[in-house]
Amino acid sequence: MEPRLVTLKVNGRTHHAALAPNTTLLHALRDLGYTDVKSGCEKGDCGACTVLVNNTPLNACLMLAWLAEGQEIVTVAGLGNAEHPHPLQQAFVDFGAAQCGYCTPGMILAAKALLDEHPHPTDDEMREALSGNLCRCTGYVRIIEAIQNAANELDAEQRG
């Protein structure tokens, strides 16, 4: 089947890309320059390719790009940048929650989806929210600490 012009909305920006039906959202995004979305297992086990689609964390490796047409896609770069990091991004730095960093974008997005739903998550809720994101370097203790602290930070921000 011929490639089709697909409109993808990523981090608030609109892209038009000619994509064949067998292009996954993961590779469509990486080819557009969103290399903060990582390709890991390609089977939905590791979560490195996690993106938010309409605020829902999904595995971009298991989604055909054509299906993402017109939906709001957010990658970790869409949360903040080095000058203005999102509290989750800052907390991952402050708590040393990244080692090689490959799982970090997916971790932060999974955590973002959690905090959107549960601003005061329990330990169990945090562990459940990260059930689809594997870290093979450092373990999860600091990641959990970072999320807990980001939650506190966001809460303090909201209370002003």
């Binding site: 939905g44 979560g47 964390p57 298991l62 989806a113």
Partner: peptide
């Protein structure tokens, strides 16, 4: 049922 991401899909 599997992971959060898979549950959503």
């Amino acid at each position: 049922f599997s992971t959060i991401q898979i549950m959503h899909m």
